[in-house]
Design a protein around this nucleic acid. Structure first.
Length: 601
RNA sequence: UGCUAAGUAGCAUAAUGGAUAAUGCAAAAGUUUCCGAAGCUUUAUAUAGCGGUUCGAUUCCGCUCUUAGCAACCA
C-alpha cells in the first residue's frame, strides 16, 4: 500500500547483498506507525535469521549503508524495525507526477476481459435494502476493476421465470381485476410484489386452516414441501409456461414488462446500469441442452422418475438435482446455460458473480459442474459472496413483507439530506444555484450516504441496519467526505477569484513541509496501490476506507496549515496544489464507489 | 447431525503474522483569527474460551462455546 516502494526495494536488496552477501531476500516494507519518525519501515526479523545477527544490528547496518549512499535522509532503529525517512525532493517528484497525470490512480491496461454479474432480480417483487448492497457492491467493483486496467462488462441476469414468478401471476389472474400500474398508481414492481405477498398469504392461510381442522399436523404444515391447492395451480401454470401456452405467456409478458419498467426506474435513480441484460427465460433452454449433453457423456445420470442428477461426492459435495422429473429446469440448470451464453458473447477470462452468501453452496456446485464439463471459463469463475443485511428484528424476509424497500429508503435519505441542508443555514448561498441544482446536491448526499454505509463494511460480513438510528451523516460517512470535497472546491474558487497562482513554478522550492503536509501527501500517493489492492481482493471497502482517511487527513491539514494565511507565497501555492490533488483524488475515489461529490454544499 | 462463514469496547466497524489493537456513534471537556463547524483537539472501555506453531498471533492450526447461512424437485 506504500508509494515509492519500488524505489526503495531495489536499494535495500542491493544493501543486503553488499553487506551480507544474501540474494533474493524478501523485503518486508510497511508504513511507519505515526508515532515514529519516517515513512517506510523495514521489518528485519526474518532477515536477521539469515544474517545471523540481531535484528537491531541488521537494521542498523542497512540503515547506515542507505544513508552513506545518500539514498535516504535519515533512519531510526526501534526494536528490530528500521524506520526510513526519505528526502523531501523524492516525495516532491512523486507529487508533481501525480499532479500532472490526469489519470493518476489508474493502473495500466491489462488487456484482460472480465465479466461481472452483479444483479439477479426476481421479477416478482420490488428490490430491497439487501439487493442494494448487492448492486452497489457490484457497480463499485466494476469501477475499481476498470481503474485497475481490466476490460469490464457489467451484466444483469433477470430471473423472470420459474415457480415464484407463477405465484404472483396466479394471484393476479385470480384477484387482479385487470389492475395496472396506471390504474393503481403503483410502480410496476411494487404492484407485482403486492400479488406475490397475496399468494404467500393464501397459501399460508390454507395450511393454517388445515391445521385448525385437524387435517394436518403443525409440524407438517411448517415443512417446506407442504402443499396447497393454489400452490399446485402455480405448478401447473409453470408447466403450461414451459409448454408455451399462449394465454400464460401473454400474462407473463405483460407482468414482466411492468416489473422491468419499475426496476429500470430504480436503477436510473440510484445511478447504476448494465452493458448486457440476460434473461433466464432465454437461457434455461440452453441449460436443458447442457443437461442432455451431460447425460450423454455420463457426467449426469437419470433416476427412475426421469429426474437428472450429478454425483459430486468426489468433490466433497453431494448429489445435486439438475432437472426435475417433469422435465422443468431448476435454478442451476439456468445458470449452466447462462454461463455458456456469456462465454459465447464475450470470451471473458474471468467471470464474477456478485451474489449473497446464502448461495455459497450453490456456486460451489455450479463451479464444480463447470470443471466437469471442462468449460473454458471454469477456472476464472468467482463467486463474490456478500453477507446479508439484517434488521434489528432479524433477517429480511420478502415473503413476509419484512423488508426495507429500496425505493422508500432512497427517497427518505434524500429527504433527510434536504432537511440537513436547510438546517445548516447555508441554504441562502445554495439557493442561488436554483432548484434543480439544489435537488441534485441533496440527491448526491442522500444516495451517497446509503451507498457509503453499505460499502464501507467488508462484503463478506453480515451487517446490521438499524432504521431507528437511520444512516449516518456524521463521522465515518459519505456526507463528511463530500463536505471535504466541497470545501476544497470553495478554497480553489477563492484562489482563482483572487488570482492566486499555484503552478509548479510557484512552489517548487518549498520543501520545508509541515508534518501534516507530509502525511497528507503520503496518503494521497497511495491511490494507485489502493486501487490495485481493492481490485485484487474484489473489495470496495478498501476504497471507502481510503476516502475517509483522506477526508480526515485533509481536515487535520486544514487546521494545522493555514492556506491563505501561510507564512509565504510558496507555502500557500504548495498548499493550494496539495488541496487540488486531494480534491481530484477524493472525487475519483468516491466515483469508484458510485458516489458523486458536490462542488459546494 | 454434517458443511461453510463470522465472533474485537454500550453499539457499529478496522488492523499483508509485527511496534502501545485503529476509527465512528453514544458519553465528558475544550474549540469558530484561511473554507461553509456535516469540522478540529483531549478523555474511558475490547480481541468468546482453552491449547499449539512462531523471535512475535486479532490474524495461521486444533478443540470447545455462540450466532448466521447452507445441506430443498426454493431462489
Amino acid at each position: 500500500m506504500l508509494p515509492l516502494t519500488s524505489h526503495l526495494d531495489l536499494h535495500i536488496s542491493k544493501a543486503i547483498q553488499t553487506l551480507f552477501g544474501l540474494e533474493n531476500q524478501k523485503i518486508e516494507l510497511q508504513p511507519t506507525r505515526k508515532e515514529f519518525k519516517g515513512s517506510h519501515t523495514l521489518v528485519t526479523f526474518g532477515l536477521a535469521k539469515q544474517t545471523c545477527q540481531s535484528p537491531d544490528q541488521t537494521a542498523l547496518k542497512i540503515g547506515e549503508y542507505l544513508k552513506n549512499e545518500n539514498l535516504i535522509q535519515d533512519f531510526e532503529v526501534v526494536k528490530g524495525f528500521l524506520n526510513l525517512t526519505l528526502p523531501n525532493n523524492i516525495w516532491q517528484g512523486a507529487f508533481l507526477e501525480a499532479l500532472q497525470n490526469l489519470n493518476f490512480g489508474n493502473n495500466p491496461k491489462k488487456n484482460e476481459k472480465i465479466l461481472v454479474e452483479y444483479c439477479s432480480p426476481n421479477t416478482n417483487k420490488p428490490i430491497h435494502l439487501g439487493h442494494l448492497r448487492n448492486i452497489f457492491l457490484g457497480w463499485s467493483l466494476c469501477q475499481i476493476l476498470d481503474a485497475d486496467g481490466y476490460d469490464v462488462t457489467k451484466c444483469i441476469l433477470v430471473n423472470d421465470r420459474g415457480i415464484h414468478i407463477c405465484k404472483s401471476m396466479l394471484a393476479y389472474q385470480k384477484y387482479g381485476n385487470d389492475e395496472t400500474p396506471q390504474s393503481s398508481k403503483l410502480k410496476g414492481d411494487h404492484l407485482i410484489g403486492k400479488y406475490y405477498v397475496m399468494f404467500s398469504n393464501l397459501h399460508k392461510d390454507y395450511l393454517k386452516k388445515q391445521v385448525e381442522e385437524g387435517k394436518l399436523s403443525q409440524e407438517d404444515a411448517e415443512k417446506p414441501n407442504a402443499t396447497s391447492p393454489i400452490l399446485q395451480e402455480a405448478q401447473i401454470m409453470l408447466q403450461k409456461w414451459e409448454q408455451g401456452d399462449k394465454e400464460t405467456l401473454a400474462l407473463w409478458q405483460k407482468m414482466n414488462d411492468w416489473v422491468l419498467d419499475g426496476f429500470k426506474e430504480t436503477y436510473k435513480n440510484i445511478g447504476v446500469g448494465f452493458d448486457k441484460w440476460y434473461f433466464e427465460s432465454n437461457t434455461y433452454i440452453l441449460g436443458k441442452e447442457i443437461v442432455e449433453e451431460g447425460v450423454k457423456n455420463g457426467i449426469f445420470y437419470k433416476k427412475d422418475d426421469n429426474s437428472v442428477w450429478i454425483d459430486l461426492t468426489s468433490e466433497k459435495l453431494d448429489h445435486k438435482l439438475v432437472q426435475r422429473g417433469d422435465g422443468t429446469s431448476v435454478y442451476i440448470t439456468q445458470d449452466m446455460g447462462t454461463a455458456d451464453l456469456k462465454y459465447q458473447d464475450f470470451q471473458m477470462k474471468k467471470s464474477v458473480y456478485v451474489v449473497g452468501n446464502e448461495q455459497d453452496y450453490h456456486f460451489k456446485v455450479l463451479f464444480a459442474i463447470f470443471k466437469k464439463f471442462n468449460r473454458a471459463y471454469a477456472e476464472g469463475s468467482y463467486h463474490l459472496s456478500y453477507g446479508m443485511v439484517e434488521l434489528p428484528s432479524g433477517k429480511m424476509k420478502s415473503r413476509e413483507g419484512k423488508v426495507v424497500d429500496a425505493d422508500d429508503m432512497v427517497a427518505e435519505m434524500i429527504n433527510i439530506a434536504k432537511e440537513k441542508t436547510a438546517e445548516s443555514g447555508k441554504l441562502e448561498n445554495l439557493k442561488k444555484l436554483g432548484e434543480t441544482e439544489l435537488n441534485h446536491i441533496d440527491n448526491m448526499i442522500g444516495l451517497g450516504a446509503i451507498k457509503y454505509f453499505l460499502l464501507k463494511v467488508d462484503a463478506k460480513k453480515t451487517m446490521l441496519f438499524n432504521p431507528e438510528e437511520s444512516l449516518e451523516f456524521d463521522g465515518d460517512a459519505s456526507p463528511y467526505i463530500q463536505y471535504n470535497h466541497a470545501r476544497i472546491k470553495t478554497i480553489l474558487r477563492r484562489a482563482e477569484s483572487e488570482n492566486i497562482g499555484f503552478e509548479v513554478k510557484d512552489f517548487q522550492n518549498y520543501l520545508d513541509w509541515h508534518n501534516t503536509e507530509h502525511e497528507l501527501l503520503q496518503l494521497l500517493l497511495q491511490f494507485p496501490n489502493v486501487i490495485a489492492e481493492a481490485s485484487k481482493t474484489y473489495s470496495p471497502y478498501i476504497v471507502a476506507q481510503f476516502c475517509y482517511e483522506i477526508a480526515k487527513m485533509y481536515s487535520k491539514f486544514f487546521f494545522d496549515c493555514s492556506i491563505f494565511k501561510a507564512h509565504n507565497e510558496e507555502a500557500r501555492a504548495f498548499r493550494l496544489a496539495l488541496s487540488a490533488l486531494t480534491g481530484n483524488i477524493l472525487k475519483k475515489a468516491m466515483l469508484l464507489l458510485g458516489i458523486d461529490v458536490p462542488e459546494m454544499m
